[in-house]
């Protein structure tokens, strides 16, 4: 564990807590893409299967259980909670996220570290996570005024993978022949998708004006 990875995990944890706070306290999911939440639930479900087969540390296991629990809870709130679901703008959240799942799965069947059931699903979860934010970014462009909590949620979600990139650089230079091309390239693609969001987020923060993404 290094400071970059801890910062990344804490940023990820914080982003989910922000979203849970928004949904649980003000019972609203306005501006939040259900499709991105569903993709993330699938990412965690296919990546954290190893909590049944292996044990790394208490931290690792607790974080995996929290990510699994929170992602499915958020999807449940947005789909079935009769107050929250009313604030979900389904006619704006129209990204065809099913078109992301199959190509990621096929790519995982073709490009992976080892051709085993767990490893292919793990690789699939990496590719899917790289593109999972797309429905949310599209929704933000359509939602004229993005509320602060949603903006902060997306920012910290993007920041977590950026910290992970620093973590991979650190590990590359400090550990003997440590390299994970698949993870690194997926992480770079994932972070690159946030580039313009980061630009407008920092700009709105500097000018202390509401966050607005150009259509």
């Amino acid at each position: 564990m290094n400071i970059f990875r801890l910062a990344g995990d804490m940023s990820h944890l914080f982003s989910i807590l922000l979203l849970l706070l928004k949904i649980h306290t003000i019972k609203s999911c306005a501006g939040v893409s259900l499709k991105t939440q569903e993709l993330y639930a699938l990412v965690f479900a296919t990546r954290y299967l190893d909590i049944f087969t292996g044990y790394i540390s208490l931290y690792n296991t607790l974080m995996k259980m929290f990510f699994l629990w929170s992602s499915f809870t958020i999807v449940w709130y947005m789909r079935y909670h009769n107050v929250v679901r009313r604030s979900y703008d389904k006619d704006q959240d129209t990204f065809r996220h099913y078109f992301l799942i199959l190509p990621c799965f096929i790519l995982a069947l073709l490009v992976h570290e080892k051709f085993t059931f767990l490893e292919v699903l793990w690789t699939f979860s990496l590719y899917l996570e790289a593109v999972a934010i797309l429905p949310q970014l599209v929704l933000l462009q359509r939602t004229r005024n993005v509320d602060n909590l949603t903006g902060h949620y997306v920012f910290f979600l993007g920041a977590y993978r950026s910290f992970y990139i620093l973590n991979w650089i650190y590990r590359y230079f400090t550990e003997q022949n440590y390299y994970k091309w698949i993870t690194w390239i997926s992480g770079l693609v994932q972070t690159a998708l946030y580039a313009d969001f980061f630009y407008y987020y920092v700009k709105s923060w500097r000018n202390s004006e509401r966050l607005q993404l150009p259509a």
Binding site: D50, T53, G54, T116, Y164, N167
Partner: peptide
Amino acid sequence: INDITFHDEL
């Protein structure tokens, strides 16, 4: 642990 590729990161 070399039978399953070891993923220590979240």
